[in-house]
């Protein structure tokens, strides 16, 4: 029973997380965006958050590619 629950939980988590480091980075950027929007109250806060997220997409792709080329399994 516990094994099945764990499998379901891991399946659910897998819907959102590929790499924990980048999941935490995404959450940190969202938290930063929330903090900034409390201060600024304008669309600039939203677009700054989106730009940081887009940069993190490029960073995650480069890091994953390096790992895969070194023989890490997907």
């Amino acid at each position: 029973m516990l094994r099945r629950l764990r499998a379901v939980a891991s399946e659910l988590l897998g819907l959102f997380v590929t790499d924990w480091l980048f999941a935490l980075l995404t959450l940190a950027i969202l938290a930063g965006g929330w903090g900034l929007s409390r201060q600024v109250h304008s669309a600039a806060a939203g677009f700054a958050m989106a730009a940081a997220l887009a940069l993190s997409v490029v960073g995650e792709a480069l890091v994953s590619a390096r790992r895969l080329r070194r023989g890490a399994r997907w």
Binding site: G33, S37, R38, H41, S42, A43, A45, G46, M49, A50
Partner: peptide
């Protein structure tokens, strides 16, 4: 998420 944070 931006709307939820109060971004206009």
């Amino acid at each position: 998420a931006g709307e939820g944070f109060g971004v206009g």
